[in-house]
């Protein structure tokens, strides 16, 4: 993915520990890694399984719905891209076996822990930049 794009993109989405996730986004699939040896889920990726030290992982789908575990609302843009989008919410979602983060689509003032959300396939998500969530 090019750094010339005007929206923030992952630095190294093709690196093998991340590739399954970012490829999945482009196909509207949400995936995380599961250890082939002991079955422990792993997110974010790391080369070794912390439970059994295996380096073999498979990508498995995770639920497209979850609940907000926590969130932030930025009132300051740390990058120009966000300057005209403030206030801007980012969420951590408890989605099945993992906590997975994403941009929040909707009014950040409505954000609360425990709130049910579902994946939002907006432009940035399907371009493989980052996932997004919205209230359901």
């Amino acid at each position: 993915m090019s750094d010339q794009l005007d929206f923030p993109v992952p630095k190294d989405p093709d690196e093998h520990t991340y590739k399954g996730f970012f490829d999945g986004l482009q196909k509207k699939i949400l995936r995380a890694r599961q250890c082939c040896s002991c079955g422990q889920w792993q997110w974010p990726p790391h080369r070794f399984c912390s439970q059994c030290q295996s380096t073999e992982f498979d990508w498995h789908d995770i639920p497209h719905r979850g609940i907000v575990y926590s969130y932030t609302v930025m009132h300051r843009a740390f990058r120009d891209y966000f300057a005209d989008k403030l206030p801007y919410g980012v969420v951590i979602v408890e989605a099945g076996p993992v906590h997975i983060s994403g941009r929040f689509i909707g009014n950040p003032a409505s954000l609360a822990c425990g709130m049910p959300v579902g994946i939002a396939w907006d432009d940035l998500a399907t371009k493989g930049a980052s996932p997004a969530w919205q209230a359901v």
């Binding site: 992952p10 190294d12 974010p44 926590s70 969130y71 932030t72 609302v73 980012v90 941009r103």
Partner: peptide, 25 residues
């Protein structure tokens, strides 16, 4: 790797952002 692949694309860069998740929970 986590910073560059997961956090930066969400606009999350600074410690005050990381810890706000802890505080809100």
């Amino acid at each position: 790797e986590i910073r560059r692949n997961i956090e930066h694309p969400l606009g999350v860069y600074a410690p005050m952002q990381w810890y706000s998740f802890h505080a809100n929970r």
